[in-house]
Design a protein around this nucleic acid. Structure first.
Lengths: 100, 100
DNA sequence: GCTTACCGTTAGTAGTAACTTACGGTTGGC
DNA sequence: GCCAACCGTAAGTTACTACTAACGGTAAGC
């Protein structure tokens, strides 16, 4: 599952929003969210595969934090969309002005 | 369905990529894609609901183009994630330096 | 007016994703 | 050594999503 699909799910996006502010343990996340702890683990696995989070062991706890790498890719692609959309829009305006 | 979920589907993201370069008709898109024309229509409906495309009638054809509005929202949210992730990362580095 | 081209919607189906429950494995404290 | 805390995974269920086929509706050309 790629970055887009990873952030498409609302629960997963909430998890990412929590982790992006500061590192958190799985049990911490599950306490806030309306789903069980295993569900949070599964979501984190997907986010990790997408390169959006990293984890580190700290005793029995696993601390998850945001990973800039996956985020960078998404930003690059979204910026490309943005620039192309604006260029396209600008072209349309110029054509409209030619006709006027 | 919000912008994230709209761009999560690969077919739908391809459609958006095609439309973002220049406006296209439904039959045009369906000719390139490996799915049927109704499927393209359904995807376009979802993209439209998400504010990512707009359509205009031109004879019997419907021309779709990218809509900057929906894109702007996604960009804003992604930038927020990005900034928070960097701030978080910076904080971690500073803490590590304090310990050194 | 008839045909053709283009499009959206509906109904039905197959595949997948998100969730819970149950289980086993590892680390830390007593 | 034993218990408690924390975590990941597997199995099973439910809901949803993407798709096709079939239909009806509208604009353009002859």
């Amino acid at each position: 599952m790629d970055g887009w699909a990873a952030l498409a799910d609302p629960t997963r996006r909430t998890i990412f929003e929590l982790v992006v502010t500061r590192p958190r343990a799985v049990v911490e996340l599950a306490a806030v969210l309306p789903v069980t702890r295993p569900a949070v683990s599964q979501h984190l696995k997907i986010l990790k595969t997408a390169g959006l989070v990293r984890d580190r062991a700290e005793g029995t706890r696993r601390i998850y934090r945001a990973d800039p790498d996956g985020l960078r890719e998404l930003r690059a692609q979204l910026d490309r969309f943005w620039n192309e959309a604006l260029a396209n829009f600008k072209e349309l305006v110029e054509q409209a002005e030619e006709e006027a």
